[in-house]
Simulated assay, not measured.
Amino acid sequence: MKLVLLRHGQTDWNFEDRYQGRSDIPLNAVGQRQALEAAARWANVEFDAALVSPLQRAYDTASAVVGHRSIERHVMDDLMETAGGDWEGLTFRQIREQWPEIFRDWRASNRDAGPVNGETPRLAGHRVVTAMTEWISVQSSVRSLLVVGHGSALRAAAAQLAGFSDETYPELSRLDNCHAHVLTQKGANFGRWELVEQNV
Rank of each mutant, 00 (worst) to 15 (best):
Y19R: 07
R107N: 09
S140Q: 14
T61Q: 03
R69Q: 11
D24N: 13
Q139H: 09
F164E: 08
G31M: 03
V142K: 03
Q139D: 08
E197G: 05
E194W: 02
H126P: 00
A131I: 01
Q198M: 13
F47Y: 01
A83V: 09
W42Y: 15
S141W: 06
H150L: 08
V4I: 12
R127M: 09
P26V: 04
L51R: 03
K2Q: 14
A157K: 01
E81I: 09
V129T: 11
G89W: 08
D48G: 03
E197N: 12
D24H: 06
R96V: 03
P100Q: 13
H150R: 10
E197Y: 09
L3N: 04
G84H: 09
S137N: 13
D17Y: 03
V66Q: 07
D77F: 04
A124P: 04
E119G: 04
I71M: 02
R96D: 11
L183K: 03
G149R: 06
M132W: 03
A39C: 04
W87Q: 08
L90W: 07
L183D: 08
I102Q: 15
T61M: 06
R104F: 07
G163N: 06
V128Q: 09
A64E: 15
V129W: 07
A35N: 09
A40F: 00
A58N: 01
R22D: 05
A29D: 14
R174C: 09
A188R: 08
N44W: 00
W193F: 12
V75W: 05
L161S: 04
D60F: 00
Y59D: 12
V147D: 05
G21L: 07
A38K: 00
A40Y: 00
E134T: 14
F103D: 14
T61D: 01
G149D: 04
A83M: 12
L79C: 06
A35V: 00
S144N: 14
R93Q: 15
A64C: 15
R104W: 05
S152L: 10
L5W: 05
T168L: 11
F92Q: 11
I71H: 10
W42H: 12
A49E: 13
A35H: 07
V4K: 08
Y59M: 11
V138D: 14
T168W: 04
A158P: 04
W42D: 06
A162K: 02
V142L: 11
L3W: 06
Q98G: 10
A62L: 08
L195I: 06
H74S: 14
G89D: 12
R22Q: 15
A29N: 11
W99V: 08
L79R: 11
L5Q: 01
V65W: 06
H179D: 08
E88C: 09
V129M: 12
A35Y: 00
D176Q: 10
R96G: 11
T61V: 02
F103S: 13
A124S: 13
E167L: 09
